[in-house]
Structures are given as structure tokens and as C-alpha cells.
Design a binder for these strands. Structure first.
Lengths: 227, 227
DNA sequence: GTCTATACCTGGATAGAC
DNA sequence: GTCTATCCAGGTATAGAC
């Protein structure tokens, strides 16, 4: 998905890419994600990113024209992660199982790509100027669809009535807080870092409160999926 | 409360403060909160803050020695807001009413001081280096206390068992998201700004899911407070 | 106490050799 | 394609007149 390319100039990505180019760009993007996550857009420097990627900084400008372009590329990368997982929320699905799967997937993403979450959070806090179009179009549409499914479940009496749109806000907030606010969570828990056990406990908690929010109890162990 | 002063040099606040000084400092702090909220610490400039406060930028350095000192003063201001409201959570309180009051107060803070929330969020995302001591001491202690109260409620069977510490993480995340992620919420709702009605709806939602998380139903209209 | 003018430095970007 | 050396804008901080 190239969500942001619409706002960019002619498709720079159609250039033929050699293996080296791919690898270099990948290394740069990875380093940039980390640096921007730690310090924000203005806080992170090209020199830092270059050092982390093991390249002279002039190379960053060779692969990505400017700091802003690099940052957009990082965001673009991240946005594609955001949409995928709502697929489990369908009319015919079992509500408890679908919601459990969705929250678990979100928590998994938080655990495996915390820096991605932080870059995204940073951008949104500062007004989402670069991704506003994406949020207003694709995300807006997606949430409308999925919220309709949840409303449908409620109409059929399969879950308790709940504000479906706001439920998404709550789920996003509750899951992403373990990445974005990790330092606060750690401080309160009295740990230096979040371990596997902490995240497992967090997942159980968020699943539980999500289900209870819909008047459901935890689903049993996953049977062979009914789709 | 002077949570951060411990890390600073000798009490600069003991200097006698004239009325003018108080007023100038107030204006600067207000402007700084807004600028730092919009752009982060590195993104916001002293010139912007000065312009917003209606002063030449040299004055900022006169009142607050450096940009970093000014930023810390803004944070210090904000932290005092964070702790106050947990007071309603006491052993003898009615769980539904106490939780409703707490969440409502949190949402009120979010609605009235969104910039404060954003500055705090920004600081925590970037590692909370400046407020780590505060989080590890005062906030940690406070949460431990209040979580014990909630556990006590559960032991007595007044609420369903719930992970009390993580419940706080969830409540903070769910409420603050309406300030920190306002631009995302607006985009999804298809609005330019959050209005009174939206925040009222958000409050109802967060109260509902908080209560349901504890196996409770919405409390009736507030009687005369039993304390 | 207040403000103008300026020093100094960091960091993004580029020129041009290899 | 890659890297060194350098340029220059923008931003913090201060000197010094008022």
C-alpha cells in the first residue's frame, strides 16, 4: 500500500531497484523508524539515522531526497500495518472470538513494532498534518464499515449495545499505550522493561475488558476456526 | 507541587516575585504549553513562544534560564494535575459512583486542558527522561494504593475481579486519547473539531466500558454524595 | 527589568572527487 | 553509486544599550 504517495511527486518508486538499493533503503528505513520514534521528527537527526544505518549521511539524501521524504516513507510503511487486522470483524463471525482475535493482533503489533506505533502516535499528536488525508479517507471508511458490523451484532442481540466507533478508539488506545507509554507503564509496574509476561498479562486484560464492554465473557479455547 | 525541582539547582522559586513577574511567567508558561503541545520540545521554538506570549524572546531567557528549564516548568505544572483525582477511589466508596466520578474527572481534564495532555504524552513517548523519577516514585506509589482499593472491592465481591493496575492504564489511555489523538478521532468521525456533544458522548462511552469492565452497570443519577 | 542586535552552533542539504 | 568537505539557514543564548 502506498497511502501517502498521492501527495508526492511522480512515482519515484517505479525506478528499477537493484538488490543493493532495496537493502540500503531497508536499513535506512529501519534506522529512521527507531530514531524518529525516540526523538520525533524534529528531534531526530539525519546524522543519527546515518550512523545507526552504518552509512554517511549524504547517502540518505541520495536514496531519499530530504528528511521530510524519508519521514513520509517511514509513515507510509507504518500505515499499511494499521488497517489489515480488522478483517476478522465480519457479520457472520462469533463476536467474542472476532474481538479476541482483533485485540490480540493489535497487542501483537504493539509488542513487535513498538517504534512504529510511537512514530504514528507522534505524528497524530502533532496534528497528523502528513497523514490527515489517509485518516479521513481510508481509515474513516474502514471504521464506518466495521462499526456497522458491531452495530449489527447488537441489533441481533449477540452483544450488548455499545458505541461501536468509540469502542475502536478505546481498543486502539488501550493496546497502543503499551508501546507509546511504555516508559510510564514500566515506571508504575516498577520494571525496567516490559517482558513477555507483562505483555501477556496486558493482552489478557485488554481482551477481558473489551469483551465485558460488549457484555461478553472470554471465549473458550479456539476450536477449528469456523471463519 | 514541585515534583521536578529536586533535579534542579537551588530553589530559584524562593526569589521574591512581584505581580508583574507572576503575570509574565504565567503568560510564558501558557504559550509554551501550547507550542510544545503542537510541535514537541525540539519542534517548538523560543521565538514562537515569545511571539505567542507577546514578548521579545530575550525575556524568556530572563525568566527561565534556558529552553530546557522552561520546558521542565511546563511539565512541572502539568504533573500536579495528574495525581489529584484518584482521591475518589476509597475503600468505603460505592464502586460504580467512584469510578464514574474518576473517569468523568479525567475526561473533563482532557477536554479543558488538551495541550497539557499532549505535552505529557510527548514526553512519555520519548522515554520520559525528564519525569522518570516522578513516575517511578509518586505515580507508582499512588497507583499501588488505589489498585489495592480496587482489589479490596473485588475481594468483597462488590465488583468483578479485574487487573486493577492495568485498569488504570486503560482508563488513562481511553480518556487521554481524546486529547492526544484528537486529530485521528476527528478524522474518523468526519468532523473538523471535537465539540461538546462529541466529548459528552465519549465520556458516556468510557464510563460505560469502565463500569462493565468491573461487572457493573451505570450508576443512577447522583444522589447527595455519601462521601 | 526590558529589548535590540548579534554571536555561535547545530543540522539539513549539496558539490564534486572517486 | 559512494563518500568527504563544505555551505547556509535557522535557532539558542547573550551582550549591552536603555
Amino acid at each position: 500500500m502506498k497511502a501517502l504517495r498521492t501527495e508526492s511527486r511522480p512515482p519515484a518508486d517505479t525506478r528499477p531497484k537493484g538488490r543493493v538499493r532495496r537493502r540500503q533503503e531497508g536499513a535506512i528505513l529501519k534506522a529512521a523508524e527507531r530514531v524518529f520514534a525516540r526523538a520525533g521528527f524534529e528531534g531526530g537527526t539525519m546524522a543519527e539515522i546515518a550512523a545507526l544505518a552504518g552509512l554517511p549521511k549524504a547517502n540518505l539524501h541520495y536514496y531519499f531526497g530530504s528528511k521530510d521524504e524519508l519521514y513520509r516513507a517511514v509513515l507510509d510503511n507504518i500505515l499499511s500495518l494499521w488497517l489489515a487486522e480488522t478483517e476478522v470483524i465480519t457479520r457472520d463471525a462469533d463476536p467474542a472470538r472476532a474481538l479476541t482475535a482483533y485485540v490480540t493482533a493489535k497487542m501483537h503489533l504493539t509488542a513487535t513494532r513498538p517504534d512504529a506505533s510511537r512514530v504514528f502516535a507522534n505524528e497524530v499528536i502533532h496534528g497528523a498534518t502528513r497523514i490527515g488525508d489517509f485518516l479521513r479517507s481510508e481509515l474513516h471508511g474502514l471504521v464506518a464499515q466495521r462499526a456497522a458490523v458491531i452495530d449489527h451484532w447488537a441489533t441481533e442481540g449477540r452483544i450488548a449495545p455499545v458505541d461501536a466507533t468509540h469502542l475502536f478508539f478505546t481498543i486502539w488506545a488501550a493496546t497502543q499505550t503499551y508501546a507509546d507509554f511504555e516508559s510510564q507503564v514500566c515506571a508504575v509496574l516498577g520494571k525496567a522493561r516490559l517482558g513477555q509476561a507483562d505483555l501477556a498479562r496486558a493482552t489478557t486484560h485488554v481482551v477481558t475488558i473489551t469483551l465485558r464492554s460488549c457484555g461478553l465473557e472470554p471465549a473458550g479455547p479456539p476450536h477449528t476456526s469456523l471463519q
